Computed example of a mutant assay.
Amino acid sequence: MNWSTAEIGALARAVSHAPSVHDTRPWLIEPRGDVVNLYERREVSLPRHDPTGRDRVISCGAALVNLELAVRALGWGVETTLFPQGGRAELVARVHAAGRAELTEEIATRYAAMFRRHSYRHPFRLRRLPVERLRSLSRAVGEDGTQARVIDHRTESADLAELLGYAARVLQDDAAYQRELTAWTAEPADRSSLPWAGLVRRNTRVPDEITFTARLAREGLLAVLTPDDTRRDHLHAGAAMQRIWLDAVAGGLVASVVTQPLHLPEVRAGLIERLGLEGYPQLLIRAGHPAESLSRPLPAPVSLEELR
Rank of each mutant, 00 (worst) to 15 (best):
R25Q: 15
L74E: 08
S4P: 13
P301H: 04
L137Q: 09
R125I: 00
T230G: 05
R169G: 05
S59G: 09
A93I: 08
R201W: 11
M241A: 14
D174W: 12
V21L: 13
R191D: 14
A98S: 15
R42Q: 10
G145K: 04
P195E: 05
E68P: 02
R41A: 07
F124D: 00
L67D: 06
D208A: 11
T182C: 04
M241S: 12
A98L: 12
P281D: 03
G9T: 14
T155A: 07
Q172E: 03
R54C: 06
A89R: 13
I210L: 14
W27N: 10
L284N: 02
T81D: 03
A12H: 11
L283R: 02
L235D: 11
R205Q: 13
L307G: 07
E306K: 07
T230P: 02
R54K: 08
G77S: 14
A70M: 09
E162F: 00
R154A: 08
I210E: 15
E43I: 01
R127Y: 00
A300G: 05
A186D: 14
A168P: 12
I285E: 03
V57C: 02
T213I: 08
G279N: 04
N2H: 14
S136R: 11
D144R: 06
N203Y: 11
W184E: 13
D55Q: 14
V257F: 10
R268A: 05
A108C: 00
R32V: 12
A140D: 01
L298P: 00
V21Q: 06
G288R: 07
R56T: 10
E90H: 01
D228I: 04
L103C: 08
R48T: 14
R218K: 15
R117T: 04
R116D: 00
E132Q: 05
V224T: 10
R202G: 07
Y39C: 02
P195R: 04
A73V: 08
R42C: 03
G165N: 01
V15F: 12
T104M: 03
W76G: 11
A300Y: 02
L194M: 13
